[in-house]
Design a protein around this nucleic acid. Structure first.
Length: 229
DNA sequence: GCCCAGGTGTTTC
DNA sequence: GAAACACATGGG
């Protein structure tokens, strides 16, 4: 049937895209962190924020001795906000980090969270103030090493430009479709998300700058037409 | 000065 | 339920 053929072609495009990205980028060494809590803190701090600024904030937290669920959770708002100031939205993120700390401790720490099955873990994280779908999946994938595809703005933008999306499907639908199509390991999903972010930063900005894109020839339609790569 | 960055919650229709 | 808006620093 035509629909099955289209789906198979879509899967081929996707597999080819990630093969090429793997050859181009290899292991990007993404999300270095000492422990699960540090991953979770970084996931909150990086919300709509450049990683360079997250690193400054993480350094501020280390400096202040706050990179710990108890210390961070008990710190005064002003103290925590000052430590994470370089990451922007510091008042918003201070509230979110303290909500994260409360939930983290209530769950029995990383050990308690790791004991949960993936759906329960996602649901628990999503229930925390300031932890949305992408942040939750960042934590599930990079802190707890579960096989979830992290969908972000780059995922929509790049897959849209490569003709893999017919429309703009809802987050959960796209995530499940990608996981079904790719059937990858946690390590593969960690790499895929990193690849899409790197590719997006370099070549698929909101205003396309697609010159010398390593996967230009795989582009099918949409924004990449008209010689943008 | 303008755009963008590894989003989320709230308000409003 | 989707669109508009607030949140804020730092780099190009």
């Amino acid at each position: 049937m035509a629909a099955e053929g289209a789906a198979r072609d879509g899967a081929d495009v996707l597999a080819g895209l990630f093969e090429r990205l793997e050859a181009t980028y290899g292991d990007l060494g993404w999300w270095p962190a000492r422990d699960a809590f540090e991953v979770a803190v970084g996931a909150v701090l990086t919300q709509n924020t450049a990683w360079r600024n997250v690193e400054r904030a993480m350094a501020g937290l280390t400096e202040a001795g706050l990179l710990d669920p108890a210390a961070m959770g008990d710190a005064p708002h002003e103290t925590l906000a000052e430590a994470i100031r370089p990451a922007g939205y510091f008042n918003v993120k201070t509230r979110r980090l303290q909500a994260l700390c409360a939930a983290w401790r209530a769950a029995g720490g990383a050990e308690g969270l790791a004991a949960r099955e993936t759906p329960s873990l996602r649901a628990y994280l999503l229930d925390i103030h300031g932890v949305g779908r992408e942040t939750a999946d960042d934590i599930v994938l990079y802190a707890f090493y579960r096989p979830v595809f992290v969908v972000d703005a780059y995922t929509y933008r790049i897959l849209g430009r490569y003709g893999w999306l017919d429309d703009e499907p809802p987050y959960e639908g796209l995530r499940e479709r990608l996981e079904t199509t790719l059937a990858g390991t946690p390590q593969a999903y960690q790499h895929y998300h990193a690849y899409l972010v790197e590719l997006g930063k370099e070549h698929c900005r909101p205003r396309p700058r697609c010159a010398e894109c390593p996967v230009t020839d795989l582009c099918g339609k949409r924004g990449v037409a008209a010689g943008q790569g």
